[in-house]
Simulated assay, not measured.
Amino acid sequence: MNTEEYIDTLPKKAARLRADGTYTVLPMMHHGKLDANRLSLISRVVADNSLPGIRITAGQQVLIDGVPADRLKSVIEALGEVGLAYKHKAQGCLGTDGCKLGQQNSRAAAERLSELLDTYDMPCKVKAGVSGCPMCCAESMARDVGLYGKKGGWTVSFGGNAGKRVRCGDILGENLSEDEAFELIAKALSFYAENAKKKERTARFVERVGLDALKSAVLTAD
């Protein structure tokens, strides 16, 4: 089995070839969290293999750089869990866990949202941002699915995008309980999954079908 065949057996984005012929390796993390044992293991693997070091990605991940092809398998085996923990990205800020402005538990909600996203067969990648307050440090309004907290509850947005064609997400509900927010998100995701074109992001989907159609589908009482 050659190197590329080996990479194909790994979880998503576990290892990628760089322009200089070396590889990056992504140790598995959950929403930017590492305990002491995991942190020590990553440091030891980097030191034992004389690697350049690590860097923090925009997606709250630790990335090991400069892994030679002949060390790739041994590095991955030493790390154990590699690749993305979830198929779709849900970024969460500190929220009430560590920010004085936090009004809702954004970390717990981001974990729950990641699990929800993985239950859908999406036509395209979906990014989510969960912020503990309206400051939206997790860029909630520029994500496919957005949640931000206020004292009265959660605000849900849908159809945001931070790419070349920036789009602010549309507000679907405000002052919702967590369960209410997730019920609304589930309806929006179902409507998107069932009606979007292949590789059509939520921003372009909402522009195509119209906000009225989205609201009619998700806000109509069961």
Rank of each mutant, 00 (worst) to 15 (best):
G173V: 02
M122H: 12
P68Q: 00
D20H: 11
G32K: 06
N105S: 04
V126C: 15
D8E: 14
I171E: 15
A181E: 02
N161K: 06
R165F: 01
C99H: 12
R167G: 04
K33C: 08
A90R: 01
L79T: 07
K125A: 12
S74Q: 15
F205R: 10
D212R: 13
G21E: 11
R107Q: 04
D179Q: 14
K125C: 08
L189D: 02
K13W: 09
A47T: 14
L17E: 13
A109G: 00
I76G: 01
L63G: 06
A109S: 01
C136K: 13
R55H: 15
T155N: 12
K100I: 03
E139V: 11
L10R: 09
S106R: 02
G152H: 11
K13H: 14
A69D: 10
A196V: 06
A181Y: 05
K89I: 05
K89L: 03
I64F: 00
Y86F: 15
E207Y: 07
I76C: 01
A196N: 05
A47Q: 15
T155A: 12
C137Y: 06
V82I: 05
G95A: 07
S106C: 01
N37I: 12
C168P: 04
L214P: 04
K150G: 01
T24V: 14
I64T: 03
R167C: 09
K150D: 00
D35Q: 03
S190H: 09
A221T: 15
G80R: 03
C124R: 07
E4K: 12
Q103D: 01
N105Q: 08
V206Q: 05
A221M: 13
V45T: 00
V62A: 09
A186E: 10
N195S: 02
R44H: 12
M141T: 11
K198A: 07
A186S: 14
D179G: 07
H88P: 00
K187L: 03
M28V: 06
G169L: 14
V209Y: 08
S50P: 02
E81A: 15
K164W: 03
C133F: 09
R71E: 05
E5I: 04
V156G: 01
R165Y: 03
I7C: 12
L219W: 02
D222I: 06
L72Y: 06
P68N: 03
G210A: 11
L176H: 03
R18V: 05
G95Y: 02
P11T: 09
C99Y: 13
G210L: 12
D121C: 07
V206R: 00
L211F: 11
A221E: 15
G95R: 00
I56E: 09
Q103W: 05
S216R: 13
L214Q: 06
G83D: 04
V25A: 04
L17Q: 15
A69P: 03
K197V: 07
H88C: 08
L184H: 02
M29L: 12
G149P: 08
I7T: 10
D65E: 08
A36R: 13
T3Q: 07
R112Q: 14
P11S: 09
D97H: 12
N161Q: 02
K187W: 01
R208I: 10
T220F: 01
R44K: 15
I7Q: 13
P123A: 05
Y86K: 11
E139T: 11
V67P: 02
V209E: 09
E194L: 09
V46A: 08
K125P: 05
C168D: 10
F191V: 00
K89E: 02
N175T: 14
E194F: 05
L39E: 13
P27Y: 06
G132R: 04
L79F: 01
